Simulated scan of single mutants.
Amino acid sequence: MKMHNPPHPGEVLKELCIEPLNLTITEVAEALGVSRKTLSAILNCRAGISPEMAIRLGKAFGTTAESWLNQQMQYDLWQAEQAVGNVEVKRLSVA
């Protein structure tokens, strides 16, 4: 089932994983083995969750990589539908 206007996974990461543990961006970036700049871009919704980052997040927070990638896919699909949802496309079929 598609979610209506799903949150960016960076928002989920911040609100459900980082803030409850009272962690700083620096602490989380070091634990994940990424730069503070990389993590900040995700948390501020300027970058998405890559498969590699999904694996890192899964290991760090005891979740699955699939859950992070699914959140990213739902967010990306919603954004794309809003941008091109009314585009005229000719239906094609195999004879």
Rank of each mutant, 00 (worst) to 15 (best):
R36W: 03
G10M: 07
R46D: 13
P20M: 10
P6V: 12
E19V: 11
V94E: 14
V87T: 12
L32H: 02
N86D: 15
L39W: 03
A47W: 01
L23Q: 12
G10D: 02
T24F: 04
K14N: 11
A29E: 09
N22W: 10
K14A: 08
K14S: 08
S50T: 15
I49F: 09
R56K: 13
R36T: 13
W68L: 03
K90A: 14
V34R: 05
I18H: 03
G33Q: 00
K37G: 11
E11K: 10
P9V: 06
F61D: 00
N86I: 08
W68N: 02
N44H: 13
V87I: 15
A83W: 02
N22R: 15
S67T: 12
K14E: 06
F61K: 00
T24L: 09
K14M: 14
I25M: 08
V84T: 04
W78G: 05
G62M: 04
V34G: 00
C17H: 15
N22L: 14
Q72F: 07
L32T: 03
R36G: 03
L16C: 09
V84R: 07
T64G: 00
A65V: 00
R36K: 14
T24G: 14
P20D: 10
Q71W: 02
K37Y: 12
I49H: 04
A54C: 01
V12Y: 09
I55L: 15
M53P: 02
L32I: 02
R46H: 13
T64Y: 00
E19Q: 11
G85S: 13
P7V: 07
L43R: 04
E52G: 01
C45F: 06
T24C: 07
H4W: 09
S35W: 03
E52A: 10
T64K: 00
A95Q: 13
W78D: 13
E30M: 07
P6L: 12
S35E: 08
E66A: 10
L57A: 03
I49L: 04
M73D: 10
W78F: 13
H4N: 07
F61W: 04
A47P: 01
R36M: 06
V28H: 07
K90D: 12
L32Q: 03
S50R: 07
V94F: 14
L43K: 02
V12E: 05
M1V: 05
E11C: 02
W78N: 11
R46A: 13
S35A: 04
Y75D: 05
G48A: 10
G33C: 05
H8M: 09
N70D: 12
S35Y: 02
A60L: 03
W78L: 02
A80Q: 12
V84F: 14
I25Q: 10
Q71P: 00
W78M: 03
T24W: 08
N22V: 04
P6M: 11
G48D: 11
N22T: 09
K2N: 10
H4I: 11
D76V: 02
G10C: 06
G10N: 10
Q74L: 15
T26A: 14
Q79H: 14
E81M: 11
A54F: 05
L39R: 01
R91V: 15
F61S: 00
A65Y: 01
H4F: 11
L57H: 02
L13V: 09
M1D: 04
R46K: 15
A83N: 12
V84E: 12
G48P: 12
A41Y: 03
V84L: 08
M3G: 01
